[in-house]
C-alpha cells in the first residue's frame, strides 16, 4: 500500500510538472469548468423558483445534492478522466505492453498515471461549492455523519470510474478505438438528478444494472437520514458486487489482449 502511495506521489509530481508547461490550457480549463458548475446550480435554482419541493427534497437538500455531484465530478475529472479517456486508445494501439511487464498492477497504472493537474483549481472550486452547500444546510448533522457522507461520495467516484471502464473494456474484444463511451455520455446526466424523480423501472435499472443512482443519490439519501439501513446495505453490497464484477471482466480482458503488431 505504501509503495502504491509513493508511486502515486510520483504520478502527481509528473502531472503537475507537465501541466505547468501549458499555461493557456491551465487557465482556460478553470473558466470552462466553473461555468459548467454554476450552470448545474442554476438549473436547480430555476426549478425551485417554481416549486418548494422536488420529489420530497427541499431546495437546501437539492443544493447539497448538486454540490455533491460537482464534487464527485471534480474528483473524477482530476483523478480518473484523462486516464479513462486514453484507455481505449492504449488498448487499440497495443500500448499496454510495457504495463503488463512491470511488477505492479497494470490497472493501477492505467487508471491513475495521469492526474489532471490543469483541473486541480476546479477541484478546489468544487470543494468550495460543497462546503458552501453544507454550511447552508440547516438540518443538524454530526461531524462523523459528514465524514461518512464524504466517504460515500468518494465511493461514488469509484463507481463512476468503474462504469466508465466497463464501457471501455469491450475494446479488448472489438478493437474499436473508443469503446462504447458514447452510450455512457448519453446516460451521464441521469446521475445529476435525484433518483426519486425516476419511475420504478428506471430506478431499478439505474440502481442495479447501470448504477448511476449509487453515485450521488444514495449517499445523499443516507446523509438526509432516509431509510438508512435499507439504502446503506444496498449501497455497500452493490458496490462490492460491482467491484468484483469489474475485476472479473478485467482479468478476462487481459487474457483477450492481443497487443498490436510492432
Amino acid at each position: 500500500m505504501l509503495r502504491y502511495l509513493k508511486l502515486y506521489g510520483y504520478f502527481l509530481r509528473f502531472s503537475f510538472t507537465k501541466a505547468l508547461e501549458f499555461r493557456f490550457d491551465f487557465t482556460f480549463r478553470i473558466f470552462m469548468d466553473l461555468a459548467y458548475h454554476l450552470s448545474n446550480i442554476f438549473i436547480f435554482k430555476i426549478i425551485f423558483s417554481h416549486t418548494t419541493n422536488l420529489a420530497g427534497w427541499t431546495e437546501e437538500q437539492a443544493i447539497v445534492f448538486i454540490a455533491s455531484y460537482i464534487l464527485c465530478d471534480g474528483l473524477y475529472m482530476s483523478f480518473f478522466a484523462n486516464n479513462c479517456w486514453w484507455f481505449p486508445v492504449f488498448i487499440n494501439k497495443g500500448e499496454l505492453d510495457y504495463y503488463l511487464t512491470r511488477p505492479v498492477s497494470p490497472l493501477f497504472f492505467l487508471s491513475l498515471r495521469e492526474f489532471a493537474a490543469n483541473s486541480f483549481i476546479n477541484l478546489l472550486f468544487a470543494i468550495g461549492i460543497f462546503t458552501w452547500a453544507i454550511t447552508n444546510y440547516s438540518s443538524p448533522f454530526s461531524i462523523s455523519q459528514l465524514l461518512a457522507y464524504i466517504f460515500l461520495i468518494i465511493n461514488g467516484v469509484v463507481i463512476y470510474y468503474i462504469l466508465h471502464m466497463l464501457f471501455y473494456l469491450p475494446v479488448f474484444w472489438t478493437q474499436s478505438p473508443r469503446g462504447f463511451e458514447g452510450l455512457l455520455y448519453g446516460l451521464d446526466s441521469i446521475m445529476k438528478y435525484p433518483d426519486k424523480i425516476q419511475n420504478l423501472l428506471f430506478r431499478y435499472l439505474f440502481t442495479l444494472l447501470i448504477p448511476l443512482n449509487l453515485i450521488i443519490s444514495f449517499p445523499a439519501k443516507l446523509f438526509f437520514g432516509e431509510d438508512v439501513i435499507y439504502n446503506g446495505v444496498l449501497l455497500a453490497s452493490w458496490t462490492i458486487v460491482f467491484w468484483s464484477f469489474f475485476l472479473w471482466i478485467w482479468s478476462k480482458a487481459l487474457k483477450q489482449y492481443s497487443s498490436a503488431s510492432s
Binding site: Y10, R13, F14, T17, K18, E21, G94, E95, D97, Y98, T101, S262
Partner: peptide, 17 residues
C-alpha cells in the same frame, strides 16, 4: 523488455524522473 518502436519513458520529463 525493450521495443525499439515503443517508448516507455515519460515523454515530457527528464529520463531521470
Amino acid at each position: 523488455l525493450i521495443m525499439g518502436q515503443k517508448a516507455q519513458l515519460w515523454w515530457d520529463l527528464p529520463a531521470f524522473d
